[in-house]
Amino acid sequence: MKPNYKDININAIPKHSGLILPNGEPWETSEHIMVKPAYTEKDLEGMEHLNYAAGIAPFLRGPYSTMYVMRPWTIRQYAGFSTAEESNAFYRRNIAAGQKGLSVAFDLATHRGYDADHERVMGDVGKAGVSICSVEDMKVLFDQIPLNKMSVSMTMNGAVLPILAFYIVAALEQGAQYEELQGTIQNDILKEFMVRNTYIYPPEFSMRIIADLAEHAEVQQHLHLGLPHAGSRCHLRH
């Protein structure tokens, strides 16, 4: 009594049975959102965001029109330690293993704008990040790494001016064009002031630097600094 399967219309879904969901206890998340144990089409009624798109404000579905279909995200790993030479070797190994972008961690001495041989920072040099004192160090850091192809994120706030300048000069000296540079610099002095304390100038003056950098990125229209000011929430949770 094999049925004739060809008679089955798999798309003939019976009308909603009218079965009432048991309506069990909702789950209250730590955000105090009540999550129901089951959702249905009815739960979408009245929602205003369902017909938003990607690439069009308010960018609910992402900032680019087809997101990763056209261009995958940048695979970065946050790293930096010891000397420019050692960090450079590490970056190169990671790039060879498929990493597509760099995320540079600087040591506290660099963050605070001190040279590595300054007595006040003796214990911090090369710890928790790479030590960069000059454009020459920056050139070593990115040696053999084509900055016209590589997206670079730099966690830098206090000493943002010299570090960004070193980076740009190192890239230009490699032969990269200004408009080819891509990446972000954290440039979030409020977080620095509030949480980490590695600021150099008081907030008001620092805010001026942030604004100037944003303007610079704007004037140099091709300097794709991504977000010249990348608000960094992660430290606030520490």
Binding site: N11, I13, P14, H16, P22, A53
Partner: peptide
């Protein structure tokens, strides 16, 4: 490359609850 609300128009089971025949939405009501 993307799907949106209009792409659900022809999907016949979107009005269903979990634990309803033909169980696309699973065997568990909640």
């Amino acid at each position: 490359p993307y799907y949106r609300a209009e792409n659900l128009a022809d999907i016949p089971w979107t009005g269903q609850q979990p634990n309803e025949f033909p169980y696309v939405r699973g065997n568990k009501a909640e």
